[in-house]
C-alpha cells in the first residue's frame, strides 16, 4: 500500500471521523518495500496541494524515514523533475507498506495490511 494512500484514509468507525486524532492512521510494525514506478510530473504537481504535510511528516517520522522539510515544496520546486520531485515520488508512490497494521489514534482499532492490501472491514460489534 503506497504511503500516499494514508493521506486519504482514516478510521472506518463513524464516530471516530469527527475526532481530529483519527487522522492520520498510524502505521505499526510496518514492513516497507519499494515498488518502483516512473515519475509522473503532472500527477505530482496535482497531488502536491492535496497533501496534509504536517501529518505526512508525522508518518515518515513514525516509520523512521528521513525527516521531511517543515513546509511542503512549492509547485515550482518540482522542476522537470528536480531531486525534490524524485524524493517525493519515492516517498509517496514507491514506498509501500507490505505488512503491518494501521492504528486509529482515537479508538485504537487496528487495521491489518497484508500483502500490500489494507483491510478496513470491521468486526460485527463495531459496525
Amino acid at each position: 500500500m503506497k504511503l500516499l494512500t494514508l493521506n486519504f484514509l482514516t478510521c472506518a468507525i463513524k464516530t471516530c471521523k469527527t475526532s481530529p486524532s483519527s487522522f492520520p492512521l498510524h502505521p505499526q510494525d510496518a514492513e516497507l518495500e519499494i515498488v518502483e514506478s516512473d515519475v509522473n510530473m503532472a500527477f505530482l504537481r496535482n497531488i502536491l496541494p492535496r497533501l496534509m504535510w504536517e501529518e505526512l511528516r508525522g508518518i515518515t517520522r513514525e516509520l523512521g524515514l528521513p525527516e521531511l522539510p517543515e513546509t511542503a515544496p512549492a509547485a515550482e520546486d518540482l522542476g522537470e523533475p528536480s531531486q525534490v520531485a524524485k524524493d517525493l515520488h519515492r516517498l509517496l508512490l514507491e514506498t509501500s507498506i507490505r505488512e503491518g497494521k494501521l492504528v486509529c489514534g482515537n479508538c485504537g482499532h487496528e487495521y491489518a495490511v497484508k500483502e500490500g492490501i489494507a483491510n478496513f472491514l470491521l468486526p460485527g460489534h463495531l459496525v
Binding site: M1, L4, F8, L9, T10, A12, S37, I117, L121, V127
Partner: peptide, 24 residues
C-alpha cells in the same frame, strides 16, 4: 481489490461501503 490495485497510480483498499475509511 487484488486485481484493482494493479492500475497505477491509483490505490485500492478493502472496505465496506457503509463504513468507508476516508475522512469526511
Amino acid at each position: 481489490v487484488k486485481i484493482a490495485r494493479q492500475h497505477q497510480p491509483h490505490v485500492a483498499v478493502v472496505a465496506d461501503n457503509l463504513s468507508l475509511p476516508h475522512p469526511l
